[in-house]
Design a protein around this nucleic acid. Structure first.
Lengths: 134, 134
DNA sequence: TTCAATGCAAAGCTTTTGCATAAAG
DNA sequence: CTTTATGCAAAAGCTTTGCATTGAA
């Protein structure tokens, strides 16, 4: 990762332009003009640098990992909420977070790893869609 | 899953006997006397029934999913904390949980899916080990 | 000119499937 | 006796690697 290339720029730009969605390596490969191995190498590098967030699906046949642009980079002081319906990534940056983390630590002796933790559920919009008669 | 077989019993018993740890399908296959496909079929069935919890690692080559016994079965009203160091699974069944879920819902419009969410971090014992001079 | 990045094709792993056989009920 | 589970081997799919070539600085 010492030189600057057209392919790597294209991969990063693709993720930045669709920051609200997840993509498999295959989808990125289909979207940008670069070889398959190059796409994997670029995605791996971006993930390691913190610019991409990786979501591992079930492993093995027919189930590939997905990646999403992570605007906050390597900051790890807030929790991510991920909507299971629309795939949106919400950055929970509110003050109550500190209270939650303190509770886990004080009452359960558990130090939360914000960088690795993702809370799954349904976001506001998708809840409305899924329960039209509530 | 209509008949009762020695192989499926063995797989379930293996997980129950080591409820504190995660195993890959390969490890289970090495430990119990059953074919590879049978092990996968048994694990899949147990996971679907809620008796096993699945942790998907990165997909593809060299990275396999792991499974762990989930004593609480299909109950989904509490959150799981997983220690990244010892692999232990903590069932957070305290009353503050309701407060947390309410906050997510009221302030962020986000309905947490407890069944799918796992909070990663370091448990009490492992924190002490990792920071001997604190 | 030099050293890193690309791309293709081949290799590697995990998981699934097909099908004949064995076992459960 | 009928129906489901097993097991082997082959297939499938995602990701990585080797190596010659291209491109960046």
């Amino acid at each position: 990762m010492k030189y600057h290339t057209r392919q790597r720029d294209a991969v990063l730009r693709f993720f930045m332009d669709h920051g609200d969605r997840c993509f498999t390596a295959r989808e990125v490969y289909d979207a940008v003009d670069a070889g398959e191995a190059t796409v994997f190498r670029a995605i791996t590098a971006l993930t390691e640098s913190g610019l991409l967030k990786k979501y591992a699906s079930g492993s093995g046949r027919g189930d590939s990992a997905t990646y999403q642009y992570n605007a906050c980079g390597s900051r790890t002081d807030h929790i991510h909420l991920k909507c299971e319906h629309c795939g949106g990534l919400i950055h929970m940056d509110c003050s109550f977070m500190a209270t939650i983390l303190a509770h886990f630590l004080d009452e359960h002796g558990f130090a939360v790893d914000c960088g690795k933790t993702v809370i799954y559920g349904l976001c506001e919009n998708c809840r409305k869609e899924e329960e039209p008669h509530a």
